[in-house]
């Protein structure tokens, strides 16, 4: 018999406060300790939100692809659930990255959307591609096939991300400040601690939300299984859904 702790998501009690703590400390450092950038002024502070969101989005999509490979190899529904939650949450983070990127573009270049900005355009294309993940899942009824096809999609889309970035970047002149790496537009030493903390915070938030979604799905599956055991008329699974099948423990 599983304990309640196992049922309601491992480590969630540690992860959630940790994510909140790191994010708060990172943002406090970003707004009160990090120097104001000479060129862009206060609006540059948005990189402490925008860039961590963007990094988390990409890592999340790639993680979804890795879990999908794992699912194709193992056939374990739990890997499919991991892939699904990673892509689902990344999509939400992606919307955040697109909106904050748009706000930043408005603040520094005066327009809400700049086609010359390769990273922003790449994000839009990746976003549009991953938007089809849920409709694809929804239109396949058989849960096993749904998981398999969604995994194939996740792998293809994961490989698509770097290629897309190469193509879009080559097509447009560079004007986006490279936050990491190049000297031009790079972070000064004073900005680095806040930036790294915010990135770690965003990753922890992502992990927390993924764990939370998985715990919620497990709990619902468990509840349905218990209802069926006590003779209530509960279907094993909704007739059509885009969410993966969760094995009741």
């Amino acid at each position: 018999m599983p304990t309640s702790k196992r049922l309601y998501g491992n480590h969630l009690a540690i992860l959630a406060p940790l994510a909140a703590g790191v994010l708060v400390v990172g943002l406090v450092l970003a707004f009160f300790q990090a120097p104001i950038e000479a060129d862009q002024g206060f609006s540059q502070k948005i990189i402490y939100i925008h860039v961590p969101l963007a990094i988390t989005t990409l890592l999340g999509f790639v993680w979804g692809g890795i879990c999908a490979v794992q699912y194709l190899r193992s056939g374990n529904p739990r890997d499919d659930l991991r892939s699904y939650t990673a892509i689902h949450q990344s999509l939400i983070f992606c919307i955040g990255a697109l909106i904050t990127g748009s706000i930043w573009a408005k603040a520094s270049w005066g327009t809400w959307w700049v086609w010359e900005e390769p990273t922003l355009v790449s994000f839009l294309i990746v976003f549009l591609l991953y938007c089809t993940y849920q409709p694809l899942r929804f239109s396949i009824e058989d849960p096993e096939r749904q998981a398999r096809y969604a995994a194939v999609f996740a792998v293809v889309a994961g490989a698509f991300i770097p290629l897309n970035f190469i193509a879009v970047r080559l097509a447009d002149p560079l004007i986006h400040p490279r936050v990491l790496g190049t000297a031009d537009g790079g972070l000064t030493a004073g900005m680095r601690p806040a930036f790294y903390l915010c990135t770690i915070g965003a990753l922890l938030l992502f992990a927390t939300l993924c764990k939370y979604e998985m715990a919620s799905k497990h709990t619902r599956a468990q509840l349905r299984a218990l209802r069926r055991r006590f003779g209530q008329d509960a279907p094993a699974r909704p007739a059509r859904t885009s969410a993966p099948e969760v094995p009741a423990r």
């Binding site: 294309i125 549009l128 591609l129 938007c131 089809t132 409709p135 694809l136 239109s139 396949i140 009824e141 096939r145 096809y149 194939v152 999609f153 293809v156 889309a157 698509f160 290629l163 897309n164 190469i166 193509a167 879009v168 097509a171």
Partner: peptide
């Protein structure tokens, strides 16, 4: 992928177009 789905034509278009963006760019 799309031939096994219910909304075959819809899935084909929305799936293929973003995937083909790098081809169209190049």
């Amino acid at each position: 992928i799309a031939v096994r789905t219910r909304a075959r034509d819809l899935i084909t278009s929305i799936l293929a177009l973003p995937l083909l963006v790098p081809v169209i760019i190049g």
